[in-house]
Structures are given as C-alpha cells and as structure tokens.
Design a protein around this nucleic acid. Structure first.
Lengths: 211, 211
DNA sequence: TAGATTGTTAATCGATTAACAATC
DNA sequence: TAGATTGTTAATCGATTAACAATC
C-alpha cells in the first residue's frame, strides 16, 4: 500500500527491461545516459521512459541525463531486487529442475530451498544442493523456513491443488508455470508464465506470414 | 499479409486464452456459450470478447451466443494450430529438455525434431526420441528437414549467435528463452519468453505488499 | 553563460466499455 | 412471437507522444 500503488501494470512490466539495460551499461563502464539514448537501446520512446521513471521519482538531472549506477540501483529497489526471497518448487520435472538450476535467479536474490514431488522415484534426489522432498512435508517446510515464493511446475491438473497448499502454508507469492488459471485469495501475489500462449502467438504470426 | 494484418497485438495475445477455455468447455461437453458466460470464465468483459472475436469474423448468432466447437476450431485456425510445425532447440540444458519433453506442444502441432548443443558430453544423448546433435550439423539439418521454428534455450551470451545461425539456415520464427534482446531481420517472427522479467514483476508486488 | 535534457503538462492516439439496433 | 444475445457504433478511459518551461 505504498505511494506507487497507482502505477499501472503496463509501466511496471517495462521496469525489468530498463533495469537489464542499465545493468549492461554498468558492465560496460558507462556512467551516464539520456532518455534519448535509452530509447535507442530499449525501443521505448524517450518521452515514455521519462514518464515511466517519473512515476517513482525524479531520478534524472536536467542537462545531464541519468546516472546509470544510481538509476539501476533505484530500479532494483523498486523491483525488490535488494531483498532476499526464499522459494520452493512443486513439480520436480525438467522445468522445475531448470529453474532450480538457473543461477541467474539466485544471483537476483531468489533462493530455491527445496523441491517437492509426489513421484517416489525422484524423492531424495538432489539438483545442485537442492533436495527433492516428499509432498507430505511441504507445509511444515514452508512455515519453518520462511518461504515467501511458491513455484508451480506441475501438470495443469495439479496446479490448483498445489496453489491451495501454498495458500494454506502462507507463502506470499506464487509463480505459476502450469497452463491453467488458478484461484488464490486477493492478497496473494500471482504471476503466471504462459508458455503455451507464447508459442501460440508465434504460431499466429507464422501462419499470418505465409498467407 | 492477410486481412487480419491490422488486428492489434493486444487482441492477438488474448486469443490463446479464449482458445483454452473453449477447449475446456468442449471437454466438458458444453456446446454453447454467450459472451457473458465467457466473460465470467476469462475475466475479460463481454463487450471486449465480442469486439475481439469480431476482428476475425462474426462467429456468433444473435439470441444464441457462440457454438463452442465452431469457435474453438476457428480460433485454432487463426492461431495456426491446424498446421504442423517442425522445430529444433539449441541449448540442451534443463530448459531445452523440458521443452523437448513437454507433450502439450507436440499435441498442439509443434514437433521438436532435434536438439543441438556444443557440449560434447551431451551430444548423442536422447530425450524421448529426440537426439542431441553437434552444432556443426545444424544448418544442414534445418534445410533438409523443413524446420520452421528455432528455439533458443542457451545462456544469454550465445543467444545472438544462435539467432544468426537460425536466420542463415532459413527458419521462419524464433522462440527465445535467453534473457537477451536479439536482432533478427524484419520478416523473421520473434517471440520472447522473459522468465527473469516475470520473476521481477512478482518480486515488485511482493515488495509493494509488505510496505 | 549556453547547451542540453529533464520533469511535466497538454494533445493525440488507441483500447475498453457502454449502449442499442439488428436479428436469430 | 418474445426473449436473448450478437455485431457494431458511440462514449469513455487510459496510455503514449509531443511540446516546452524549468534548470542543471
């Protein structure tokens, strides 16, 4: 319920891209950038970039532009990348394992503490140092380990059931990869990754291109 | 360059959701639905649903609503789901394997013919019946096997290089999972899956909720 | 200071919603 | 036929772009 409560989702969805390009610029040792230059990089208009950023504060300086490092850090804070989050994954198939394995998430502050599955053949296995545990212990685990993010990488028919477990156990946000719409309480954060839909969009344009 | 060339991306991105709910309704044996009922299911307004569908034709009937099966099939055609597409994956890590393993894509008409990787330790392995091959043979393979979709599941630093190979070999569309913006010619279809950005959005709302 | 570029207001554009005549 | 619901036009809303005064 902070001051930026009113910022539109459209704007928020652009923030990660700004953050990514600013990080790239930092890596290149560039310390200063104008909205015009950022426009060339990101493909958004300079005007839009200034509008977007000014939803969160006046990070720039007239006649100069933006300090890359400052702006990157501020956007990082806005995106919550200055925090550490504990996560668990339900569904220890390839997709779950891919997420468990991906160092980029851990570098950004998201730590997968454990994976859970119903298949006895995978229970006890480890991905890096992340153990696949029996679903039986999930609620306990979440409560004891301060888990804030629940990741769903099960088939779609199990997704709602897993979400219900997450709600009951008290996670704050759910990252859902199952191709199903799941219902969670109002105050639960839900972010869906729609691989099917993304592929269908690609398919749409492929078909349109050959007509 | 068909008649629906002008339909906005905003509308197109809603089509897969309509298609999914209509498929669900078919599975339940429901043969008829009104825009009002679809509104309850999808969360879009009835008015918006009628507007969206009318971009592609008058699929409904006054006083009746929409025939579920007809509409599902028509949307399927619009999305290109009546076609078969051949695909290959570059990057045989967990994410690549997850995609290769996912039956849902194959059921929708997307067939992964092969995976490619640079790591000699995985070359020759098989995921289901999909072989991991040496990158050396990719251009040949794409040309010989009528591959239309190139999937990128490499680390970000290899993404552009892989995209260039795809362009050279003549694929029509690229499905990119690497967290990088890649450049492709105008007439190449490019669809990005931004796992990082999705996670950051979740993080944004988690942080906002605790303020 | 002069030049550059922001922050912000106003104008435009596009997308969503409302309303209703057409019609099954 | 009467009731229901579409297809479509008009009204509203929100997002993007343009413009420029403020100011570093």
């Amino acid at each position: 319920m902070g001051k930026d409560n009113k910022v539109s989702l459209t704007v928020i969805r652009r923030l990660p891209k700004y953050h990514r390009y600013l990080s790239d610029l930092m890596d290149k040792g560039i310390s200063r950038i104008s909205s015009q230059e950022l426009s060339v990089l990101t493909g958004f208009t300079a005007s839009q970039i200034r509008q977007d950023l000014n939803n969160f504060g006046g990070f720039g300086q007239q006649g100069y532009g933006y300090n890359v490092e400052d702006l990157q850090r501020e956007l990082g804070k806005i995106l919550g990348l200055d925090q550490r989050y504990n996560a668990v994954i339900v569904g220890a198939g390839n997709l779950g394992q891919a997420i468990a394995n991906y160092r980029g998430f851990e570098d950004a502050g998201f730590k997968v503490l454990a994976m859970f599955d119903r298949n006895p053949r995978v229970i006890g296995l480890k991905i890096r140092d992340i153990e696949i545990k029996d679903m039986e212990h999930i609620e306990d685990f979440i409560k004891k380990n301060n888990v804030e993010i629940g990741i769903i990488t099960t088939p779609k028919d199990s997704a709602q059931e897993v979400a219900d477990i997450y709600v009951k156990a008290g996670v704050k946000g759910v990252w859902n990869f199952a191709p199903a719409d799941i219902n969670v309480p109002e105050d639960m954060i839900l972010e869906n990754v729609r691989l099917n839909e993304s592929l269908f969009i690609l398919s749409y344009f492929l078909k349109a291109a050959t007509k």
